[in-house]
Design a protein around this nucleic acid. Structure first.
Lengths: 146, 146
DNA sequence: ATCTTTCCTTCACTTGAGTGGATCCAGCGG
DNA sequence: CCGCTGGATCCACTCAAGTGAAGGAAAGAT
């Protein structure tokens, strides 16, 4: 069966373009992204980014996934995991509307917080996660039956 | 700079082989994994798996990452994110020792919990994360440098 | 109308991800 | 001692991931 039947990579990437804008509110261009990403060491072409957005190519490599996720300030898991994607999306969405009121240009900064927190903090969050998990386990009466 | 300077993909994959064993306690062979993965629709060769383990090749594609993560029962983020990897590792470790007592064969089920938590709980975690993030911001004196 | 500019779209080509053996290296019978 | 089997190691080739450069389409400027 098709593994990515839910949301395609193309849709997700395209969605990132739609939601994560530049300071002036415009969408990033493929070329800009290609340039910014390449400047960070991982070369990528604007045409390839376009192909990914338009479903002409799926199945990029680890380095490109990393680089793109990095640029948009989302964890690489965004491209894999539906739950993560949905979560991040709501985060970004919230920030977007908030921005329209306050006018703060820090969408990305906040978007990054989920995946690109400092190592120390991240560990703290992981421990919190651990607690939450155990809570859920207890709540369910210790039955991990999927 | 090299993004994966901390732990290489090879090390992580190899580590999975070492920790996630089959029912009889033996390591999975490259061939077995290749077979199992291919049987699930994504073809992969044993030689390629070996190359990945031995650092001869890094940079696999999305589909292969997905498939491997799926086989070992870890979220794909395992291959990207150091914090996640560490978290999962401790989980697996705990389960391993536990298994030697009770003999329960549900290693992967548990290993997934960090990445595949229920949506509601995950939201909670995200909110906790939010708090932590803001704490860090305040701590740094509200300077979002970089 | 024409020249710029900017970006999207397309496609023929390059190159590295991924494969198919072939080879080596144990263990294990006979 | 020798063949057999199961697995790791190596490597030359294939084919799809990824590129570059050219061709539109839309919006301004002159």
């Amino acid at each position: 069966m098709a593994e990515q039947g839910r949301r395609t990579l193309a849709q997700r990437l395209d969605h990132l373009f739609d939601t994560v804008r530049r300071p002036d509110g415009q969408e990033y261009t493929n070329e800009h992204v290609a340039g910014a990403v390449s400047a960070k060491g991982v070369t990528i072409s604007q045409s390839y980014i376009w192909q990914l957005r338009k479903q002409k190519k799926d199945n990029p490599t680890l380095k490109h996934l990393q680089a793109l996720a990095d640029f948009f300030g989302v964890p690489p898991a965004y491209f894999f995991d539906d739950a993560v994607a949905g979560q991040i999306d709501t985060q970004i969405e919230a920030l977007r509307t908030e921005r329209e009121n306050s006018g703060a240009p820090e969408v990305r900064m906040m978007a990054m917080r989920a995946g690109e927190l400092s190592p120390d903090r991240r560990r703290q969050v992981m421990e919190l996660l651990d607690v939450v998990y155990k809570l859920e386990q207890v709540e369910r009466g210790e039955t991990p039956g999927k």
